[in-house]
């Protein structure tokens, strides 16, 4: 099983935190770093995406601030090396229907360390898991961020969708209420999505990244439901996303004027830059420098 899960990581986060070496199916996707194209969300230069997908059987995207809770480690090793994670696993099996699992920054750090410590046995288990699936998605309940985006950008959605529908791919596809830009898909499914999605987002030049993410999530949901109707036996695993619950202090060097300049939707809403960052900006990986 050739699989790749790309973690979209803002440059400032990569510089501030440092990144563990990529290994197995997990790869960092940092705009402007290494040989990966500057993909931004899904848009930007997407020319490399189909070729990446061509080389893989499964390809996925997730956000650094909201990674999939992919948990392949046998319990004895998990208990010995990552003592905070068995309790997280227990929460996940109880709250599997939640789209997101809130965790502290300490638990999140341990989770990231666990991923970096996976060995050949876990790689094999992951490969076996993925081999029987067509899609890995967060459970279909809208997360708080999506609800917020729906309120914030809902007014612009109809006009955007009308533009997107000029592409035959989206022309008659029924709408979906909520979705996510985090997914792992069989490459054939991903390839049917990537071009129309990038083309649709290209109709939003200069739009805030959060708006693009909101609309991309809804288009992804439309596409995947269409796929499920084409193939009623689509094999889907529902995996929650982890979200840190901390009230994030603005990073050193945070400039309020620059933040509002980079996030004009926040400025238009009359929100205070620091309050917005603490409330949700850090979770949404908003640009700040």
């Amino acid at each position: 099983m050739r699989a790749l899960l790309l973690t979209r990581t803002p440059l400032e986060v990569a510089l501030r935190q440092g990144l563990a070496p990529s290994r197995g199916m997990f790869r960092w996707l940092v705009p402007g770093i290494g040989d990966m194209p500057a993909l931004g969300l899904l848009g930007g230069d997407t020319t490399r995406l189909p070729s990446l997908a061509d080389d893989q059987e499964m390809i996925g995207l997730e956000d650094h601030a909201r990674p999939f809770f992919i948990d392949p480690m046998r319990l004895p090793r998990l208990e010995a090396e990552f003592p905070l994670l068995p309790a997280l696993r227990a929460r996940a099996v109880r709250d599997w229907h939640h789209g997101t699992l809130p965790v502290s920054s300490t638990v999140m750090a341990q989770y990231r360390a666990m991923r970096a410590a996976l060995g050949a046995a876990e790689d094999a288990a992951l490969a076996h898991w993925l081999a029987g699936l067509d899609a890995v998605l967060p459970p279909p309940l809208p997360g708080l961020a999506q609800q917020r985006d729906g309120v914030e950008y809902g007014h612009a959605w109809p006009a955007f969708l009308a533009m997107a529908r000029q592409d035959p791919h989206w022309a008659t596809m029924p709408e979906a209420d909520a979705g996510s830009t985090s997914f792992i898909l069989r490459s054939t499914i991903f390839l049917r999505l990537a071009r129309p999605l990038a083309d649709a987002l290209a109709r939003l030049p200069g739009a805030p990244a959060a708006m693009q993410q909101c609309f991309a999530a809804r288009l992804v949901a439309m596409h995947l439901r269409h796929e499920a109707e084409r193939n009623p036996l689509l094999r889907i695993a529902e995996v929650p996303l982890l979200v840190e619950t901390r009230d994030a202090a603005p990073p050193p060097g945070f400039d309020t004027a620059r933040y509002l300049e980079l996030n004009p939707d926040v400025a238009r809403a009359g929100m205070d830059a620091q309050s917005h960052w603490r409330a949700c900006g850090w979770q949404e990986d908003r640009a700040w420098a």
Partner: peptide
Amino acid sequence: YIMQKRMEQPLLRVRQ
């Protein structure tokens, strides 16, 4: 029972 199995085998494919 399902919760127990998922604790033991976290990549179990369980679905409603």
